[in-house]
Write a protein that binds this DNA or RNA. Sequence first.
DNA 1: GCTATAATTAGGAATCATTCCGAATAAAAC
DNA 2: GTTTTATTCGGAATGATTCCTAATTATAGC
Lengths: 144, 144
Amino acid sequence: MEEQEIKRRIIEGMKEKGLKLTRQRLEIIDIIAGEKSHPSASAILAKARNRAPMISLSTVYYTLDIMKKAGLIKELEFNDRDSRYEGDVSDHLNLVCTGCGKIEDFRAPRPVPSEKVEKKTGFRVDSARFEYYGLCRECRLGGG
Amino acid sequence: MEEQEIKRRIIEGMKEKGLKLTRQRLEIIDIIAGEKSHPSASAILAKARNRAPMISLSTVYYTLDIMKKAGLIKELEFNDRDSRYEGDVSDHLNLVCTGCGKIEDFRAPRPVPSEKVEKKTGFRVDSARFEYYGLCRECRLGGG
DNA sequence: GCTATAATTAGGAATCATTCCGAATAAAAC
DNA sequence: GTTTTATTCGGAATGATTCCTAATTATAGC
C-alpha cells in the first residue's frame, strides 16, 4: 500500500468517526504512513519531536489506541519488546527478525477464508495477524 | 495433537536438552498438555497449586521460558492481557475471542512455504504465529 | 543406595511498557 | 468569536514479567 493512500485512508477514517485532527495526530499519522519500519510508540514519539517539539508519550499512546480501535492501524504486540504499529491493515505476513527486531512485510493471502472459519466454528473474524519469526538476511550473514 | 503425544514430546525434548525433570516441571507439562484453553502463567500456577501446593510463580515463568527456548511450547503474547501458552507447536490458526479471551485452534496450513519466503527475501523462518481475532459463538450469541 | 555438584526453586524486590488521572488546552460546530 | 467537549500533558500508578540470592534437589558417578 502506498504512503499517500495510507495517510488519506487514516485521515478519512478519523473524520468519519468524528475524531479531531490535531497537530499531534497529523504528525503521528504522517510517521506511521511513511515508516516501513513498523515503529514503536517511543520511536514515533522521537520522530514526532524532531518536527514538533511538544508532544507527549501519553498522547502518542492515546492516539494509537483510538486509531487501533477504529481499525485504521494495526498493533503487533510482543512482551519482550515494545509493541509495533503499522498503517497497512491489509492482509500480509510480517517477517519479524529475532536478531535485530526489524519487521518486513511479505504479501500473502489468508490461510483460510473467514467465512469458512465462521461456518465451521461460529467464530466471527474481525482482524488477523500473521507472523514468521526468524533471522533477516543481514543478521544471518552478519551475526551467524 | 493428542494430549499424551504432547506430553511425551515435551518430556523427551527436556531430556535431550539435559533439562531436569522436577516435580514442578512435570506438573506444568501435564497442565499444558491437558489444557485446550491455552492457559496463562498464573492460570498454570493456580492449577498446579491444586495438586502440589508448593510451587511459585517464578518457577512457572522460568519453566515456561526454557521450554519456549527449547521450542517445546509456544507463547502467544498480548499486551492487554497475560501471555498464553500452548503445547501444540504444529502450524495452526488460533482464534482469539476479544470478548471472553478464549482461544480455539483451527487446523490450517501456512499461507506461504518458508522456503519461498527465504528465497525471495533472505529471511530464514524459525517459527510462526497465525491468529484471527473476533467473537466466539458464545460471545456473539450472548453479548451481541 | 549414597554423595557431590550444578541446575532449579522460592519469594520478594525491581523493571518498564502501558494505562490512568486531573487540570489545561484547542479543534470543531454554531 | 464563543462554546463545548474531546484532546493533550506529564507525572503517578499499574501489573505482568524479570531479576536476585539463598536454599533445595535431580542427576551422574561412585
